[in-house]
Simulated assay, not measured.
Amino acid sequence: MGPRRTRRPTIIDVAERAGVSKSTAARALTGSSNITEETRDRVVKAAEAVGYERNHLAVGMRSGRSGMLGLVIPDITNPFWADVARGAQDRAVKAGASLLVFSSDWNPEAEAAHLRTLRRARVDGAVVNPVSDSFEDLDRFGLPCVFIGSSAERFPDVSSVGSDIAQAVRVGLDHLVSRGHVTPALILGPKSRLARARFLRAVHEHCVERDVDPAVLAIEDGEYTVEGGREAMKRLLAQPRVGHLAVFAANDMMALGAMMAVRDAGLDCPRDVSILGFDGIPSGEFAWPGLTTVAKPGRDIGERAIECLFDEIDHKPEHRRVYMPCRLLERGSLADLSAAAPKRMAGAGRI
Rank of each mutant, 00 (worst) to 15 (best):
A110P: 04
A121L: 08
G142E: 10
G142P: 01
V128H: 01
S134V: 04
T117F: 14
G125F: 09
G125L: 07
D124A: 07
V131N: 02
G149M: 06
D139V: 12
R119S: 08
S134N: 04
D124R: 07
F135L: 13
R154H: 14
R140I: 02
G142D: 12
S132H: 01
L115T: 00
S103A: 13
N129T: 10
P144G: 09
A121E: 08
F147Y: 14
V123C: 03
A152V: 12
L115V: 06
S151Q: 15
A152T: 10
A112E: 14
F141W: 08
R122Y: 08
R122N: 14
N107C: 13
S132T: 10
S150L: 03
N107H: 11
V146K: 01
F155W: 11
L115E: 05
V123A: 04
V146I: 00
A113M: 13
A113W: 08
H114I: 04
N107T: 06
D139C: 06
A126C: 02
F147T: 05
D133T: 06
P108A: 11
D124G: 04
E136H: 10
D105L: 05
V131D: 04
V127N: 07
V146Q: 01
F135K: 02
E111M: 07
N129F: 08
A126G: 00
E111T: 05
A110S: 15
A121I: 00
